[in-house]
Structure formats: structure tokens, C-alpha cells
Design a protein around this nucleic acid. Structure first.
Lengths: 249, 249
DNA sequence: TTCGGATGTAGAACGGTGTTCGTAGCCACT
DNA sequence: AGTGGCTACGAACACCGTTCTACATCCGAA
């Protein structure tokens, strides 16, 4: 009640010089940022892109916008909604082709590659996608396009619908795992990773052969990276082969 | 400095009755729990099992052990390590059969079912597994057994090694997604989930048919849950079918 | 033109988190 | 018997999401 901020400047009072705190307040007020939902979502995406999922906090978003966390809640219900909005927004960039029954498998491959690329470019989005069906205004078009490709494969309806789920989960999980591994190792260079792989291989080779025959036999391919996309492509191919065995064509 | 806890009771002072805070201190000291790493890990697992991942905090673990959070750090580097230890510990219960070339696919299925069950029974462990190769004392035996099953399928070495990775990722991601969905919805009953699915289906049916023909066609199977394991089994089967197409047999 | 109300802003606070610091006490070994 | 090292743990630090509340500003009605 007895705060330095005057609740109501009485007119009878003499026109005292404006105290400093008042001045800064007045100075800030005109430079009021609009602070729209769009701006908030964009700031969130920027943070996800540069600093990852764990760095995304309401305070951080607010700070990047030059305001306080409480102000965000006028435009966004809570953090979960913010994440969902950011998720949907990034899907603008996913493209999908006209389904071609002759090439549907390759088309699925290409679409998943594109999705993976986008998720990779915003580390943390993959984490946000897990457990959520991204049915925002943009996401729903992606899902429609994806389902179209699967339907072009002449699969039973249930197989097409569920396969969409499984494949999407695989892509997201792949990026997420990569993201985690990266953040654990902390900016490890390609050389570090190879050194670690070599160390691991050495450990496996030192295991008693009669107890670990299979690991010894597979030690080499286990730590063969296959390039940045090799393993991803392998898993995707595995599922597509499985899908092909369901095709009625 | 001027705390109520006496640093050195001067002998000249009269034998005043022991103040309550002193009493509790004295009473606790003799009943000093050993507080081993094992006990901490066990407490953590107990919490995961009963209250889920979100309930697992250092303070909670400490409270269950009748101590303070700081005490845990003498036995465990940080929360991440605690989770990793819990992860390896839980693998004691994963069993794997002697590889049988005639039944290897079914054996893989069973092993993955078992792994999933265990991960499900300790929500949060799945999250800890992502991005990590759980090569603890127990985990390494599991990996060996798994590789043995895959090798029984007469697959190229690279296929066997990478497939192990992909399948394991799928199982873990499946549980993790389930876990997140559960924690987002917050204790939703089976009825709630079905109501939500019905609502979603209604929304999809309300979409313009010329713009969303595929989603409309697949609306029913998309929201068919297939029971608690249906979709998991489907995805597992998809990958095994893909693997079968790699088998030289 | 003036006055209210609606709306958006934001500081402070609540109850939580993981982790660190410093101190106190116990144990075992010289 | 003394002492050094290990462990326990309260307090504190820096965060988190969210809410409360006071406060400016703007807009429309009188």
C-alpha cells in the first residue's frame, strides 16, 4: 500500500519533478511491443533451433522478446500450447508430391527425408513431437499427403493408417535419439565419435569369446556409422520392405 | 553464526533439558542408514514404478530414504547417472532364449515384448534409454542375446547389427511415446481416450472431402486402437517382415 | 471532451526442480 | 589418543511453469 509508485497523483499536489522510476516507466510504455502470438511462436522456434528443447522456457521466450514471462500468458494458454503452435508452424515447409502408384515407396522415402531434415534443423522439435499428433492447420495437410502416398501403395486400410503412425514415430525417434546423443557428447567432433567407436570396439573385442560370440562377430558392422543418413535409410527401408509385403499389388 | 544449534556446549552451563531439535538430531544419528548406491537405485525404481517419471526427483528419492537430497550426491554423480543405473538394473529381468533358426522371428518378437513390458512397468526408463547404448553389466548380456537371435536369421552381418539398433529404437520410442501421451493427458481413463478418439474422428469427418479424401477414407482405422499392444505388434511385424526379405534362407 | 471499462503488460510470489557449499559428526587408522 | 578422511545434510542458488494483482494504455459511449 505504501509503495513508492503513486496510485493516484492528487491534483492538489505540486508538480514535483518526475522521479526516475516513473521516468523509465513512461519511457518504456510508448515503445510497447505488440507482442503477438505469432511473435511468441517465432521466438520459441528460434530458441529451439539454436539452443534445443531444454532451453525453451517461458522466461527465456519472454526475455528474448524483452518482456516478462507473465505477459506471454495473454496470448498463449501455457507452454504446451506454445510448443504445439511452434510444431505446427514448422510444418509449412514440408512438401509432398502427387501420389504416383508406380513410385509410392520412393515418394514416401523422399517425404520422410524432408521431414527428417526439417526436424533436424530445429533440434528439440522432435522431442516436442513425441506423444503428440500434430494436427494443426498445417500438420493436417501433411498427414493427408502422407496418407495419400500410403494409399497409393494399395495397402489394406488398417495397414496404411497404422503404418503412417509407425513410420512417423520412427522418423521422430531417429532425430530425437541423434539429438540426445549429440547433446550428451556435447559438440563432439566427427573424430571424437570415431575415437569413441574405436574404444567401444576394443572393449567388445576384449570380452570372453565363449560368452559373447555374437557381439564379437558383429563388432565391426555395429560401429560402422554408414554416414549421417545410412542407418536412418536402413530403418526406413526395413519398414518399407515390410509394407511392400502387405501390398496387394 | 548465531544459530539455535549450539556449536560447543560449555561445561559450565547447567544441564538444561535437551531442546527438541537436538533431540531429533541425536535420535537420528545412531540410526544412521548405510545409504548405499544400491539402496538409492532401488528407491528410484520404486518411485518410477508407482508414481512415474515426473515424480522422480532427487528430493523425493531422499525423502523415501529418510534423508536429504544432498546426501545422495555422495553415491550418485547426478540424476542422469541415477537413471542410468536404474536402467541397467532393470535389465536383470529381461530374458532371452537359445537361438533357434526355425523360430528366430518369433523369438525376437517375444524378447521385444518382454523388454517393452519391463520398460512399461517403470515409466521414464524409456526416456533414459534413448540415445544411449545401455552397455552396463546387465545390458551387455541382453545385447549379446539379441544379436544371437538376429544372427540365427542368417542375415548379412551389417543387416543384423543395424536391425538390432533400429528395432530397439522402435521398442523404446513406442514406450516413451505412450508414456508422454499418458502424462500429457494426465491419468485419462480408457473411456476418456475413446471419447477423444471419437471427437477426433468427428472432426476429420467434417473436413471438406475434396481436400482431405485420404484422411476421410482412413478415419476409422486411424483411430482404431487395436488394444494396448495392437499397434506395437504391427510395427514390430513390419520390421520383421522387412528383415525376412533380407534373410538368405 | 471526459470518463469508464476492457485489454495487455509485467513485477512479485508460490511451490517446485537439480545441484553445490560448508559444516558437523562418525569411523578407522596411525 | 589423536587425527584425517569420508559421509550426512541443512541451507542456499539458480532455475522452472504458473498465478495474482496492480498498473498503464486504448477505445467507445456519454
Amino acid at each position: 500500500m505504501a509503495e513508492p509508485v503513486a496510485p493516484n497523483p492528487p491534483e492538489s499536489a505540486p508538480p514535483a519533478p518526475v522521479p526516475p522510476w516513473e521516468r523509465t516507466r513512461k519511457a518504456k510504455a510508448p515503445a510497447r511491443t505488440p507482442l503477438s502470438q505469432e511473435a511468441i511462436v517465432e521466438a520459441a522456434l528460434r530458441i529451439l533451433e539454436t539452443d534445443g528443447y531444454d532451453a525453451l522456457s517461458m522466461r527465456r521466450v519472454a526475455a528474448d522478446l524483452g518482456t516478462g514471462a507473465a505477459s506471454l500468458y495473454a496470448h498463449v494458454a501455457n507452454k504446451d500450447e506454445l510448443v504445439k503452435l511452434a510444431l505446427d508452424r514448422v510444418f509449412v515447409d514440408v512438401s509432398f508430391p502427387e501420389p504416383d502408384p508406380e513410385r509410392w515407396m520412393e515418394q514416401v522415402r523422399e517425404m520422410m527425408r524432408g521431414t527428417r531434415k526439417i526436424l533436424q534443423s530445429h533440434p528439440g522439435l522432435a522431442r516436442a513431437m513425441l506423444g503428440r499428433v500434430p494436427m494443426g492447420p498445417n500438420g493436417i495437410h501433411i498427414i493427408e499427403g502422407f496418407m495419400g502416398l500410403l494409399r497409393a501403395g494399395d495397402l489394406p486400410d488398417r495397414v496404411a493408417a497404422w503404418a503412417g503412425d509407425v513410420i512417423a514415430l520412427y522418423v521422430v525417434a531417429n532425430v530425437f535419439e541423434e539429438d540426445i546423443r549429440f547433446s550428451i557428447h556435447g559438440e563432439a567432433s566427427q573424430e571424437d565419435v570415431e575415437a569413441w567407436a574405436g574404444e567401444m570396439k576394443g572393449y567388445i573385442r576384449s570380452l570372453p569369446p565363449e560368452q559373447f560370440p555374437n557381439m564379437l562377430a558383429l563388432a565391426d558392422p555395429m560401429f560402422e556409422t554408414g554416414g549421417p543418413d545410412g542407418r536412418f535409410e536402413f530403418g526406413l527401408d526395413l519398414m518399407l520392405r515390410g509394407l511392400a509385403s502387405h501390398s496387394r499389388r
